[in-house]
Structures are given as structure tokens and as C-alpha cells.
Design a binder for these strands. Structure first.
Length: 288
DNA sequence: CCTATTTGACCACC
DNA sequence: GGTGGTCAAATAGG
């Protein structure tokens, strides 16, 4: 299992690769693949570094402690006599926070369950839980609150893990880096694909990338080929990909304690994959 | 009719 | 007692 230090290094490495791409973009806007906008690259860099910062600032405990805390936080049902689970502020070390100009679309389906005005803040805070919280007993939640305007900045705080592992969108950096943070997922292939945003009320970042397991590589590549080969319209393949992902996701049960070595975030593999996908013109940062 | 969102009330924590 | 997190009934929308 990677140490927090290694995770930070990996996040920074990925940010570095994006920065290099941005540099190339700026140096020669006419060359190479122009499907990646400078904005998307800049955004991915920001996300990488904010994740690195997040990991560093959340680091006082050993990783094993964090994982056990997280698993207990996620999977254990609320205490019988405590109908409402209260977030202990001292547990904030297990949360993941993101400040973004637009509320972050992390690729998961969320259902809003509350909204409150917060003292000393003129903006209300919205409360979301994973839409699969019943079906898959998924304990993931998030709070979203605007903290600034002009330009608007929204703070999204994530609590717990997605045990559902049903990802409806492929937000590259978030997914990749969050998987590092989670240690629950693996990163075998990273692909920048069309925006798959079907999420109701979601806020598209337009930066799409999926993180796959080894066993799904072939399926995914096949689908991508179909996607690229058959049509420029994303709808059809989007459907196929969602189905694939859905079936893959549903068969995937990631026990937190058994994350294998091969499941660790491999920045070299990731960068290599970025390059190869890029070479084949498979970068495509959604937003249109 | 079903599902998602809104919103007032309830409850735990400080 | 104040504040924030969650519940659940009411409401809206498809």
C-alpha cells in the first residue's frame, strides 16, 4: 500500500505531466493533439495539486489507521440508538475537500437530502449522499457550499467511500487521484473519453477520464474502438460504455483491506497510458 | 405513479 | 442553547 508521501508524489507527478502538456500546448498551439484545451489541462493541474495538498494536510495518522477508520465509517450502519449520524469535526482528516469554480462532478450519482444555511456564511450548504446508498449500501456523502463569488468558488467536502463503485462519469483527475486517496480502487488504464455526463443536475467539468481495473482493459478498449470507429456521436457508445461500466462495477467488490499491490496507483503506467492514448488521439476532454 | 428535491423539524454535539 | 447534520413529509416534475 502506498504511503501518503508516495500518494502525494504520484499526484504531483501526474500534475507535472499535465503541466508539461500545457507547456507544449502553449509553445506550439498548432502541433499535436488539439482536442485537449489549455483550460482542461490547467484545471487538471489544479486538481492534482489540491489533492496533493489535501493528502498532506490530512496526514497525521498512519495510513492503516486511516483505512480502518474509513472502512468503519463507511460500512458500519448507524448505531441503533443514533438515528442521525453526526460528523465529528475531529474526523475531518478522513474527508476529502475540493474548492472549485464549479461544483465538482466526480462521476458519481448523488441525491440531495438536505440544505441548510450556515452561520457566518451567506450561502447555503447542500447535503448529498450517494444515490446507491440504499441499493449498494454506499456510505459516501458530500457537502457542497459556495464560499466565494466573483469568481464563484464552491467547496465540496466528501465523506466516506463509494462502496457502490458505479461511476457514471469519468472525471479524470478526481477519479485517479481520489483512488489514491481512497486506496480502494485501482488505476490500470486512464483514458480521456467523451463526457459521459448523464448525471442529473451535475456540473460538468468536461474533463473526463476513466480508471479501470485490469480485467476491464480489453472490454474498454473494444468499446473505445467501437466508439471511435463507428461514430462521432457519443450517444451510442456512451450507452455501451455505461452498460459495460455498470456491469463491471457491479461485479467489483473492493474490500478495503485487500487492496493488492497491483492495484496501487502507478504513475509510470498512468503516464505511459496517457501518452499512448494521446498518440491514438483518444484524448477528448468533453465539454462542448 | 414514481422519483428527486425542498424544507421544516428533530437530534447530537459543543 | 446554538449550530450543523439528517430525517421525512410535502411538493414538483417527468
Amino acid at each position: 500500500m502506498n504511503s501518503p508521501h508516495e500518494k502525494v508524489v504520484q499526484a504531483i507527478l501526474y500534475g507535472h505531466s499535465c503541466a508539461k502538456r500545457l507547456k507544449l500546448w502553449l509553445e506550439d498551439p498548432m502541433a499535436d493533439d488539439r482536442s485537449v484545451s489549455s483550460y482542461d489541462l490547467a484545471k487538471s493541474i489544479v486538481h492534482c495539486f489540491s489533492n496533493a495538498i489535501s493528502i498532506l494536510s490530512d496526514q497525521p495518522k498512519s495510513e492503516d489507521d486511516q483505512v480502518s477508520d474509513l472502512s468503519s465509517m463507511d460500512s458500519s450502519p448507524p448505531l441503533p440508538h443514533s438515528k442521525r449520524r453526526k460528523i465529528n469535526s475531529t474526523n475531518s482528516t478522513k474527508n476529502w475537500r475540493d474548492d472549485s469554480p464549479d461544483p465538482y462532478n466526480d462521476g458519481f450519482l448523488w441525491r440531495k437530502y438536505g440544505q441548510k444555511s450556515i452561520k457566518n456564511s451567506k450561502y447555503e450548504r447542500s447535503y448529498y449522499r450517494c444515490s446507491y446508498h440504499i441499493d449498494h449500501d454506499c456510505g459516501a456523502r458530500k457537502h457542497e457550499q459556495q464560499i466565494k463569488e466573483n469568481p464563484p468558488v464552491y467547496r465540496t467536502t466528501y465523506f466516506g467511500h463509494h462502496t457502490c463503485k458505479i461511476n457514471h462519469n469519468h472525471d479524470a483527475v478526481f477519479t485517479a487521484v481520489q483512488d489514491q486517496v481512497d486506496d480502494a480502487g485501482s488505476c490500470r488504464i486512464i483514458r480521456f473519453g467523451k463526457e459521459l455526463d448523464q448525471e442529473k443536475g451535475s456540473h460538468s467539468t468536461g474533463f473526463s477520464l476513466s480508471v479501470k481495473h485490469e480485467e476491464s482493459i480489453i472490454k474498454e478498449e473494444t468499446c473505445t474502438d467501437q466508439y471511435r470507429g463507428i461514430t462521432g456521436d457519443d450517444k451510442d457508445c456512451q450507452h455501451v460504455m455505461e452498460e459495460n461500466q455498470s456491469s463491471l462495477s457491479s461485479s467489483y467488490t473492493p474490500p478495503l483491506s485487500s487492496v493488492s499491490e497491483t492495484d496501487m496507483f502507478d504513475s509510470d503506467l498512468l503516464l505511459n497510458n496517457l501518452d499512448s492514448w494521446d498518440r491514438y488521439g483518444l484524448f477528448d476532454f468533453g465539454v462542448h
